[in-house]
Simulated assay, not measured.
Amino acid sequence: MSAAPRPIELREGGVQDLPSVSRIMQAAFDPAYGEAWTQPQCMGMMALSGVWLLVASIGGRDCGFAMARAMLDEAELLLLATSPAVRGHGVGGALLRAVIAESRNRGATKLHLEVRAGNGAIRLYHREGFQKVGERRGYYRGTSGEALDALTLARSLA
């Protein structure tokens, strides 16, 4: 008999969580595309009005995070990452649903995000109601010189 899965715990994060966020981001994001932000970049973003950070943990260990911002009636998911060891265990979905709920609480009626074409997270975004609204050709440049498109997705929060 296997043990029951441990619950995913979500909490509001702060600058004290940036070392953990950085570790998760480095493990989760493909280094070939330079998608991971530095701690100073994250700290600078968190200093802006309307930005919030959510941290997910299982059994007391941080395993995912989401950073988002809301301005007037729109919100944007800036970053979302889960540790590779917990992919497929609902952490990303829990974080995304929490960002959707908090965006609504902050008065947003639409939530936007950008994702690299081919990123496996696109399936999660579609499951949660996001639709493609735009594309930036050749936006991501890999270390090998390969260029991949950025997809812009959005969903209504009404």
Rank of each mutant, 00 (worst) to 15 (best):
A108E: 08
G64W: 02
E114S: 11
R104F: 00
S83T: 07
E74G: 09
Q16L: 11
M1H: 06
E146Y: 00
A68D: 08
H89E: 15
R104H: 07
R104K: 15
G34H: 01
V86L: 02
S20E: 13
V115P: 04
P19C: 08
A28I: 11
G64L: 05
G134Y: 09
L72P: 09
G107M: 14
R87V: 00
E35L: 07
L113M: 11
A47G: 15
H112F: 14
N119I: 05
T82I: 02
F65H: 01
E35P: 00
M25R: 12
L151I: 12
S57R: 02
P5C: 03
A68K: 03
R141E: 15
G50L: 10
G34P: 05
M46N: 06
V133T: 14
I24G: 05
L80I: 15
L153N: 03
T109S: 15
A68N: 11
V51L: 07
G88W: 11
G92K: 01
L124M: 00
K110N: 11
E74W: 11
P7N: 08
T82M: 00
V86N: 04
G34T: 10
A70M: 13
E35H: 06
K110P: 04
L10K: 01
G34I: 07
N119Q: 00
A121K: 00
A3R: 10
A66K: 00
P31W: 10
G44K: 10
E135G: 08
N105Y: 12
L77C: 03
A28M: 07
E9W: 01
E76T: 13
E9D: 13
E9I: 12
P5E: 03
S20D: 13
G13Y: 05
V91F: 02
L72F: 14
Q39K: 10
T38Q: 10
A108Y: 10
V51Q: 08
M43F: 10
Q39L: 14
L157E: 13
F29E: 01
G14C: 11
S22E: 14
D149E: 07
M1S: 15
P5I: 04
S49W: 13
G60N: 05
R104I: 09
Y140I: 02
V91H: 02
V115A: 02
A68F: 11
A47L: 12
A98L: 07
A47S: 12
G145Q: 09
G134M: 05
A47P: 06
C42S: 12
A68T: 08
M43K: 12
A117F: 06
P19Y: 06
S49K: 13
R155D: 03
N119E: 07
I58C: 04
T82R: 00
P7W: 05
N119W: 03
N105M: 14
A75D: 13
S156Y: 05
V86K: 02
A147H: 14
C63R: 06
L48R: 14
R137L: 12
R23W: 07
G118F: 05
G88K: 02
Y33V: 05
A101H: 13
W37Y: 15
H126T: 11
G92A: 08
G145L: 05
A81L: 02
G44F: 00
